[in-house]
């Protein structure tokens, strides 16, 4: 395979790691906490043994040391809450919540403190905290380790939420999240983190503004809206549709809260049909939210009702054949696109 001159392809994990490293170099108030983010608890001769369960924080401990890079005990309520307090008093903590399903252990700290302190205290306190969490099914990990849970966080006023969809957006969104003065949740899909590097990632630092969606593929017949991993699925579906002679536009949501309503509405106004693809549980979800937005603001333009492609209303199964039915795939998206284009 020939790579274009000037194209720098790195993996999602490398891109995320690079953003974190850059920000720690630039700003001494940035610190990192989480389980095994260095590994081995700093044991001599074994420093940086893990660099995080997904290796997102590899190399930080040797460069920045034990004060700014901390392995934590398995005490999510404790260390996420400590992240809130440290943020309120002058640091910019970046804290790993390994898998998003573990939110339950520390939900109080996220939703009652991080989300509300700025508001309750009359805007006098800022919580520049970044929490990143692994999401998604498809890894044979069963119901507690495969959730997505976007809408749970988006629901809370005061929390910002972003879902990168590739290495480029992983880097730019993480940098923007760390620099943001509000608490931001960054959702890292596990399947995306395992994909082969694709697309250019600039070496220099850059921000992708929180609150802006992007069109990753222009089209005129139907809008496919993806969130994180499902953007990848939408791209595959769009390629299939193109082979059939349809022109699909793919909108990559990127930012879940705030959400780029204008980008959604104007794409739908152009294509007049929309398929929203979301890996989260279907009830009270991003897909439902976007569908309502389209119904309210682009109703007169629609040739067909908005169509959602989601898993069924069930927990994530362990057994692989069942799990394969659970996660939306490109065939589901192509079928839904046919439905709305008919």
């Amino acid at each position: 395979m020939v790579t274009d001159v000037g194209v720098r392809e790195i993996s999602y994990i490398q891109a995320f790691n690079e953003a974190l490293t850059d920000e720690m170099r630039r700003d001494p108030t940035v610190m990192v906490m989480g389980e095994d983010v260095a590994g081995a608890g700093g044991r001599e001769g074994f420093e940086d043994a893990w660099g995080g369960v997904m290796r997102l924080t590899k190399g930080l401990y040797p460069e920045f040391g034990p004060s700014r890079v901390r392995d934590t005990p398995i005490s999510e309520a404790g260390f996420i809450g400590a992240g809130v307090g440290a943020a309120a008093t002058g640091l910019r903590p970046v804290v790993e919540l390994m898998y998003v399903g573990f939110y339950g252990v520390c939900a109080d700290q996220i939703t009652n403190n991080a989300a509300k302190m700025h508001y309750m205290f009359g805007g006098k306190v800022k919580i520049p905290l970044t929490i990143f969490a692994g999401t998604g099914a498809g890894t044979n990990s069963a119901a507690q380790h495969s959730e997505t849970l976007y809408s749970l966080f988006v629901h809370f006023p005061g929390l910002k939420c972003v879902a990168p969809s590739d290495p480029y957006t992983a880097k730019g969104l993480l940098i923007a999240s760390i620099r943001d003065d509000d608490p931001v949740i960054v959702f890292n899909n596990r399947q995306l983190m395992g994909l082969r590097p694709e697309g250019h990632v600039p070496e220099e630092s850059y921000e992708i503004p929180i609150g802006e969606a992007r069109i990753v593929r222009e089209g005129s017949d139907v809008t496919l809206i993806g969130v994180g991993y499902t953007t990848h699925v939408c791209r595959q579906a769009a390629a299939d549709l193109e082979a059939e002679g349809y022109s699909a536009e793919v909108l990559d949501l990127l930012s879940l809260s705030p959400m780029d309503e204008d980008a959604i509405v104007s794409s739908v106004q152009k294509t007049r049909k929309v398929v929203i693809v979301d890996e989260d549980y279907p009830r009270c979800s991003m897909a439902g939210d976007i569908s309502a937005l389209v119904a309210e603001q682009a109703f007169d333009y629609l040739d067909a009702p908005p169509r959602r492609v989601t898993p069924p209303h069930t927990s994530v199964p362990y057994s692989r054949p069942l799990e394969a039915l659970y996660v939306p795939n490109k065939d589901d998206v192509v079928a839904a696109a046919h439905e709305v284009m008919e």
């Binding site: 044979n140 119901a143 380790h145 199964p317 362990y318 057994s319 069942l322």
Partner: peptide, 16 residues
């Protein structure tokens, strides 16, 4: 192995 004959009908797996 995620089989229908498993203790949890294949829904839970090794951790459950």
């Amino acid at each position: 192995l995620g089989k229908a004959t498993g203790t949890n009908k294949g829904k839970g797996g090794t951790m459950h």
